[in-house]
Nucleic acid binder design. Structure first.
Length: 681
DNA sequence: ATAGGGTTAG
């Protein structure tokens, strides 16, 4: 681009000639000043022109469009005495590329159809809009319009259509456009677009094939697309290899290459290469690039070098939410919520990613109240709309804390904000409701779900298991198989859990053997622990012992713990003692294990053994955390541990508890009091 | 002469 000085020289040259300047020369000047955003000079030139043509009008409108000053741009547009295709397209692309003006774009496009000013330019511009808004049906209409009017054949049309179909989730249509196109129109850009579309769909081989076809047409972007595609699909080593090959084959690395390869490095924690790239970035003077600084921050966070990450963040772009987000995540993971929050607060413009990171940080750090407080703040400010991930996180927090009321409110919020109910979100709701004691609500969410996957089936089966609904769980499993959803180890863990709690030994054995035989899933430690627990509860200690002997792996603490329980239920202190050594070797720091052992010996009257274990526990300073139950009443959590008499309403609570025990068939560890049962109100 | 297409971030 010519410099401002050149513009001024050109202008003096015109003026010195003493003649009335030609329109074409002034138009040229306008465009030059416009590129330098000196709008005042543009406006002055325009005002002083004795005569203007359509190029003049296009130039002035374009100046204000690029400045995002749509009120003036539109006034000029309306006032223009001549309008050609370019005039319309300039205005249209301005609307399309600015947030909040998309309605105007659609309106203008309709107007253009009316005055017969639709061109291939306008159509590809509109394709960009429907892609951004994910308006597939509108995109299809545009495609038909293009076919009908012969505007679907150029390289621009081709790439725009591929992007539109790919980003709107119709990979097959993208393929059809690409495969059905005339080779003369497939240029490097359309090819690159197709490669990117394949990666978006996870079709790595197809991406490779397209890339390798006519390799002489590949450019830097082609290579960068390949690197980022492999990195994003979890093939980090391949991405790194491609990065190296790219240079060997004579292509020059740029910001995109660096950004993608750093993210590959983060994925496999390749700190060495990451640091080398960092040096290159500094050498090339690219460290102010927000994409690069954010991926470097992310790399150092993933490798546990929070101080490096923090210094990259502060020395480059402090207010880049994409650099601050990984740091917030990093600090949250180490439990440093104060630092995380201060970074969050330092951002003047927060996108929904940052909000999600901060809220999920609180959830991970078990600061549930802070998470919900921040969520309330998010809901009161209107600029950011919570996305699915925030809801998944919050529902996870509700599930951990079994907070039915909060969970229900989040559910309502999801419905109110019109967030799409995909399998992940439905899964979180099912999990939250069943863990909060309301399996009926969980069931309703499950039944209403449209987007269903095997994980959702797992959650619902686990929900039934948690509440002892063995028939429903087993029935749902049959349905899952009938509908061709693949069960996995989690499915069988849920099924075994049902059998455990209902004492269904035969059924449990059936599932346990079937998982290997019919579904080729080898049982893990949790499955063995479940079986041992099942045998223990059914007073079949001999089967538990024989399974212990056949274990294909070293027993872990969960298996040994289950075995100890089996010993306890079957009053066999000898076998328990045999397991004691191994268990304390693995979990010598866990006080609960000593208490468990002591309990077994005590129940058999082996007081010496009990004393020995308790002494060991004291000597090793193993702490036991008390199991607790809790209820929410209003905004307050009331916590109870075994034999706890410290509550201010102690007497009332125990009186009612006595009545409840008589009436309820079984008591779960968490009791939810509906309003009419509430003893605190 | 002016307007439209591809690759980067949790």
């Amino acid at each position: 681009m010519k410099s401002l000085l050149d513009c001024a020289k050109f202008q003096t040259h015109i003026m010195k000639s003493g003649l009335t300047p030609r329109i074409i020369d002034v138009n040229h000047l306008i465009n030059m000043y416009s590129k330098h955003s000196v709008i005042k000079d543009v406006q002055k030139l325009f005002d002083e022109m004795p005569e203007r043509n359509v190029f003049t009008w296009n130039a002035i409108i374009n100046t204000y469009v690029k400045d995002k000053n749509f009120s003036i741009a539109r006034k000029l547009f309306n006032a223009a005495p001549f309008k050609d295709y370019v005039t319309y397209n300039t205005m249209l692309s301005g609307y399309v590329n600015s947030e909040g003006f998309q309605d105007q774009a659609v309106q203008l496009f309709a107007e253009m159809q009316f005055v017969d000013k639709v061109s291939e330019y306008a159509l590809t511009t509109m394709l960009g809009l429907v892609t951004e808004l994910s308006l597939l049906s509108y995109g299809r209409q545009l495609h038909s319009y293009m076919l009908k009017t012969g505007n679907s054949l150029s390289r621009y049309a081709l790439s725009s259509l591929i992007v539109m179909y790919s980003k709107c989730g119709c990979f097959r249509d993208a393929c059809m456009v690409y495969d059905g196109s005339d080779v003369r129109f497939v240029d490097t850009v359309s090819k690159n677009t197709m490669v990117a579309a394949c990666f978006r769909e996870g079709e790595l081989e197809m991406a490779q094939d397209v890339f390798s076809s006519r390799p002489q047409s590949n450019d830097e972007v082609s290579w960068n697309t390949m690197i980022s595609g492999f990195a994003q699909n979890g093939y980090e080593e391949e991405a790194i290899q491609l990065f190296r090959r790219m240079m060997e084959e004579g292509f020059v690395w740029n910001e995109h290459s660096f950004s993608s390869v750093i993210s590959a490095c983060s994925g496999v924690k390749n700190l060495k290469l990451g640091k080398e790239i960092h040096v290159l970035i500094l050498k090339e003077g690219m460290s102010l690039n927000p994409f690069l600084s954010s991926s470097l921050v992310n790399l150092y966070c993933k490798c546990g070098l929070l101080n490096y990450a923090h210094s990259v963040c502060t020395t480059t772009q402090k207010e880049n939410p994409f650099a601050v987000t990984p740091l917030i995540v990093g600090y949250s993971e180490t439990g440093n919520m104060l630092e995380a929050r201060s970074l969050f607060d330092s951002l003047p413009d927060k996108n929904h990613v940052v909000w999600t990171a901060m809220i999920s940080g609180y959830v991970k750090a078990h600061q549930r109240e802070d998470a919900f407080q921040l969520f309330r703040e998010l809901m009161t400010q209107k600029t950011t709309i919570p996305d699915e991930l925030i809801f998944v996180n919050l529902l996870g927090a509700c599930a951990i804390h079994a907070t039915f009321n909060y969970g229900k409110q989040i559910h309502a919020c999801i419905l109110r904000t019109g967030t799409a109910m995909d399998a992940k979100l439905a899964n979180s709701l099912v999990d939250m409701y069943s863990k909060s004691g309301n399996v009926t609500y969980a069931q309703r969410v499950f039944q209403l779900a449209v987007d269903i996957d095997s994980i959702l089936y797992n959650s619902m089966i686990a929900g039934y298991a948690l509440h002892g609904y063995e028939n429903e769980a087993i029935q749902l499993f049959s349905q899952m198989i009938e509908r061709d959803f693949q069960p996995d180890e989690v499915t069988f863990l849920a099924l075994l859990s049902v059998c455990r709690h209902r004492g269904l030994v035969k059924m449990g054995e059936k599932f346990f053997f079937s998982m290997t035989k019919d579904y080729k899933i080898s049982p893990g430690t949790d499955h063995y622990a479940s079986m041992i627990d099942l045998y223990g509860r059914a007073n079949q200690l001999e089967k538990a012992v024989s399974l212990m002997e056949k274990l294909p792996m070293e027993p872990d603490a969960v298996i040994l713990g289950a075995f100890l329980n089996a010993c306890k239920m079957n009053r066999n202190a000898e076998l328990a003692k045999a397991a004691e050594y191994k268990l304390l070797q693995i979990e010598g720091g866990n006080g609960s294990r000593y208490a468990q052992l002591a309990g077994i010996y005590a129940s058999e009257g082996k007081w010496n053994e009990m004393g020995r274990v308790m002494k060991m526990m004291r000597e090793r300073e193993a702490k036991k955390t008390a199991g607790c139950s809790w209820v929410y009443v209003g905004d307050t959590v009331h916590t109870f541990i075994s034999g706890d008499r410290s509550h201010s309403d102690n007497d009332a609570i125990y009186t009612i508890l006595g009545c409840l025990i008589k009436e309820l068939p079984k008591l779960s560890s968490t009791i939810f009091l509906e309003e009419d049962l509430c003893i605190f109100c």
